[in-house]
């Protein structure tokens, strides 16, 4: 018997067996098969979840390597046990009241809060001085804070940020100013389309009314009319000058003729001998 035929028979036997089963056994096999598929899918999901959490923890560890406190905040947030704050703990700079943008004295609670706003970095530095002499400092991103926050540090950051906003550009500063470069293209596009519309209007008006006229004295002239007027005036002045020259020349000829005539008479008078 050939090897191929053995395989073929084997397969046929398998198929035959399947066909030989009753419908009940068929249904069981289907349920088993689907159950296995579900189990595998669940296992896969579980594996993916583990991989994801591992990746997150790696990220957190990497962040931990850079800045310790941030990592712990992120991990707590991912685990869902504690909601993430908009601030992180940082090194204390020991700023004075004069250097602060806002100072809050909480005598009854036993601490003072000093806030220093860094508008460029979108960050508010908050320093907390406690009754026992200890100090803590936080860097807060005011744009991540909810307006209804009840956290005193977040409230302080929001208040300081509002004050800084009012002071900056005489109250014209908004958070949206930061996104202006991104909106600049649309702003340019709008301006360009507006300019095209204006140019179209200008062309239509120009075609209807002709070139723009400039008021000079009591009358209006277009540039061409003005040029023509000047040329005509120049021409008239030249003609007048030519006429003047002609007049002068005629006058000189006349005078010369007169002189010549009077000279001839005098000569005749000299030639005639006096009677003896």
């Amino acid at each position: 018997m050939a090897v191929n035929s053995v395989n073929g028979n084997h397969l046929l036997e398998k198929i035959g067996n399947c066909h030989s089963r009753n419908s009940k056994s068929k249904g069981n096999a289907y349920e088993n098969f689907m159950g296995n598929l579900k189990e595998k899918a669940q296992e896969k999901e579980a594996q993916q979840a583990i991989q994801q959490s591992t990746a997150e923890s790696i990220n957190a560890l990497q962040l931990d390597y850079r800045s310790g406190k941030l990592a712990s905040e992120l991990l707590l947030q991912k685990s869902g046990r504690v909601e993430m704050h908009a601030y992180i703990e940082t090194a204390v700079r020991h700023i004075s009241y004069a250097e602060s943008d806002k100072v809050k004295v909480c005598t009854v609670e036993g601490y003072t809060l000093k806030a220093q706003v860094d508008a460029d970095e979108h960050m508010v530095y908050i320093e907390q001085k406690n009754e026992d002499g200890t100090c803590q400092a936080y860097e807060v991103n005011p744009l991540k804070i909810s307006e209804n926050t009840k956290n005193p540090i977040e409230q302080m950051a929001l208040e300081a940020w509002d004050i800084a906003k009012d002071l900056h550009n005489d109250g014209m500063f908004t958070e949206m100013d930061e996104t202006k470069p991104a909106d600049a293209s649309t702003e340019k596009a709008v301006t360009f389309s507006e300019m095209v519309d204006k140019f179209e209007e200008f062309v239509e008006k120009r075609m209807e009314e002709g070139p723009p006229k400039i008021q000079i004295g009591g009358s209006e002239f277009t540039e061409d009319e003005w040029e023509r007027l000047l040329k005509r005036i120049d021409k008239d002045i030249d003609a007048y000058k030519e006429e003047l020259r002609e007049r002068v020349r005629r006058q000189q000829e006349k005078e010369a003729l007169k002189k010549r005539q009077s000279g001839a008479i005098e000569e005749e008078e000299e030639i005639i001998p006096l009677p003896v």
Partner: peptide
């Protein structure tokens, strides 16, 4: 007091 908001406290 400069830089500090004073109240009844």
């Amino acid at each position: 007091i400069p830089d500090v908001e004073t109240d009844d406290t």
